[in-house]
Design a protein around this nucleic acid. Structure first.
Length: 284
DNA sequence: ACGGATTCCTGATGGC
DNA sequence: TGCCATCAGGAATCCG
């Protein structure tokens, strides 16, 4: 499922295909994919230029330009579980599209930007200038894990210096604490830092929190370098799979031997998610 | 303030 | 072979 490394990979592969192109048409095959509805969405994006592709947390962002280079608002894509954003040529037939943006084709690159999503959890949202910043989900996002400091991380994991009883994994998954971590990278980072997913955050000391922060940064950086994790659905904007799934040490490996000590990994439910960890190595 | 359940969704999987 | 239950989970929402 697309988390920070997957969305970053999509942004990087999509940018050269769509940047500087005009949105000439919006084909809506599943209206529930769009916010606001199809007509309002069209009004916000038709004729706009895609100036830049970006990412914030798990959100893919298309910054638009209106005539005269003025701010033209933003398209935000939340892929949730199975969403894909693909850059296709003019004659390529999209597979199960929900929304297709037809782009101007001057100077090579993609002619279609396709949003598809078998499970239909994902959304494509259009905002007028300033609207993105007023969207509560966006406004409340925590810092980028790769751009924050260890001190800031420690402070966010122990709010107001109090001893938080929240499970540490629940905080990692909370997009308001830090943005972009999902179930895969939470399990992988906790494994590397040797912290149990169900540990109350307040019981994890500063040294362990620093180890967790280092593990988060390392695992995200490595996953980006491997173009993300493709378990089943994830693909980049060219339709290519990532390779980080070949490096999972904990996620999805319940019952299999711990890569560090050989003990069987345990799968349990924490914060509503299947959480896999080594009961022998992860003791904090 | 926190945890748990529920909802949204469909496809893959495993048991019988 | 086919049917059914279960599971996958990001985020909103409600309830205790």
């Amino acid at each position: 499922m697309p988390e920070l490394p997957e969305v970053e990979t999509i942004a990087r592969t999509l940018a050269p295909e769509v940047e500087s192109r005009l949105i000439l048409a919006v084909q809506v095959l599943d209206e529930s994919a769009l916010e606001p509805g199809a007509e309002a969405f069209r009004a916000l994006v038709l004729g706009r230029r895609i100036a830049r592709v970006g990412r914030r947390g798990k959100l893919l962002l298309l910054f638009l330009q209106a005539g005269g280079g003025k701010d033209g608002g933003t398209i935000a894509v939340h892929l949730r579980m199975t969403g894909r954003v693909l850059a296709l040529g003019p004659d390529q037939e999209p597979s199960r599209p929900r929304v297709v943006l037809t782009l101007s084709d001057r100077g090579g690159g993609a002619a279609q930007l396709v949003f598809s999503d078998v499970r239909r959890f994902g959304r494509m949202l259009a905002f007028a200038p300033g609207g993105l910043e007023r969207w509560s989900f966006y406004r409340d996002l925590g810092p980028e894990p790769l751009e924050m400091t260890a001190a800031e991380f420690r402070a966010r994991l122990s709010p107001a210096g109090r001893r938080s009883r929240a499970r540490i994994k629940a905080l990692l998954l909370d997009q308001g604490v830090l943005a972009g971590i999902g179930n895969i990278y939470a399990d992988e980072a906790l494994f590397r830092a040797r912290i149990r997913p169900d540990a109350p955050a307040g019981t994890v000391n500063a040294r362990r929190l620093d180890a967790l922060f280092a593990a988060i940064q390392a695992v995200l950086a490595q996953a980006i370098a491997e173009n993300g994790s493709s378990i089943r659905d994830y693909r980049d904007a060219h339709g290519d799979a990532g390779a980080f799934q070949n490096h999972f040490q904990a996620y999805g490996r319940g019952g299999k031997p711990c890569p560090a000590c050989g003990a069987p990994l345990l799968a349990m439910r924490v914060a509503g998610r299947t959480s896999t960890f080594c009961p022998r190595c992860q003791t904090a």
